[in-house]
């Protein structure tokens, strides 16, 4: 760790652990992530209640994906804690499903749609357990929920971007998790896919599961989500869309980068 990074950590100090119950799907406290000397997420506290659908929004490079990856242990935390259903992340893995950005993998990889979805069963199958018909059925059922059942035997490279995104969502559904973390699931997808994904996510919410999405489209926030978290390295606002998603909080988060006219066009509840 570089001197500046250590300074950053000591500056921030020890996180005060507060008791978090098993009924809270996800809580982060004092989360700080840094690449080199530059903090990309700084001292973020947030709680995501059960059955909620939260959009994490902020400008490009605001640390949205880094926040998600730090929660999942994909990138290291400089400081802070992550609690999943009252337990540390490592012991609660089974209850979490992650949908990475579609562009993060090579879609020329030699495999079929059904094989990718079956990857979501790894925690059940382990190294050597045989794939049973019920495993295949579970994977096919997930594909059906995202409207991709007919594509099970296709090579993944033959799919459109939106179809690839739905396959990633199907893999997460197969995991049977209670907390879903999605990184830009609506980025660059067609209208049919966007509708399919939001239908699935809303069904998850109805089922009292918790959804957290890194989201970039401000225009759909009010339609799709019930909670919002605005970050730009630091957290600027968090709470129900009705109160936290306002012209003031957006202006604060985006600084000068969001034109006032753009904000006017959004369907905001004025504070």
């Amino acid at each position: 760790m570089s001197a500046a990074a250590i300074e950053l950590a000591t500056d921030h100090g020890e996180t005060v652990e507060t008791a978090i119950g098993a009924d809270v799907p996800l809580a982060v406290q004092g989360l700080t992530v840094s690449y080199g000397d530059k903090p990309v997420v700084f001292s973020v506290d947030a709680t995501f209640p059960a059955g909620s659908m939260t959009a994490i929004i902020g400008p490009n490079g605001a640390g949205k994906s880094s926040l998600l990856k730090a929660v999942l242990g994909i990138v290291p935390k400089l400081s802070g804690s992550v609690t999943v259903f009252g337990k540390p992340f490592e012991t609660a893995r089974r209850r979490i499903a992650y949908v990475p950005q579609r562009a993060s993998v090579d879609w020329d990889f030699p495999t079929r749609v059904i094989d990718v979805v079956m990857m979501g069963l790894y925690r059940d199958l382990g190294l050597l357990r045989l794939v049973r018909p019920r495993h295949r059925e579970r994977a096919l059922d997930s594909l059906d929920r995202v409207g991709m059942a007919d594509f099970a035997d296709r090579q993944i490279g033959q799919l459109s971007g939106g179809q690839q995104q739905r396959v990633f969502l199907a893999r997460a559904l197969t995991q049977g998790a209670d907390l879903f973390l999605l990184d830009e699931p609506f980025a660059g997808v067609d209208a049919a896919t966007e509708k399919a994904i939001i239908t699935v996510l809303k069904a998850l919410k109805e089922d009292n599961r918790t959804v957290v999405c890194v989201h970039h489209d401000l225009a759909t926030v009010t339609d799709y989500f019930d909670r919002v978290m605005l970050i730009n390295v630091r957290k600027f606002a968090e709470g129900p869309v009705a109160s936290a998603f306002s012209a003031e909080t957006l202006q604060a988060t985006y600084g000068g980068r969001l034109a006032a006219t753009h904000i006017d066009q959004l369907d905001l509840v004025s504070a």
């Binding site: 242990g73 990475p100 993998v105 925690r123 893999r171």
Partner: peptide, 22 residues
């Protein structure tokens, strides 16, 4: 043979592989 599944999953999608405990 023994490490087939973790090898395949982490070669395809390393970030996801990490989250499922590989």
């Amino acid at each position: 043979l023994v490490f087939w599944r973790p090898l395949k999953i982490s070669t395809f999608d390393e970030g996801f592989a990490g989250t499922i405990g590989i």
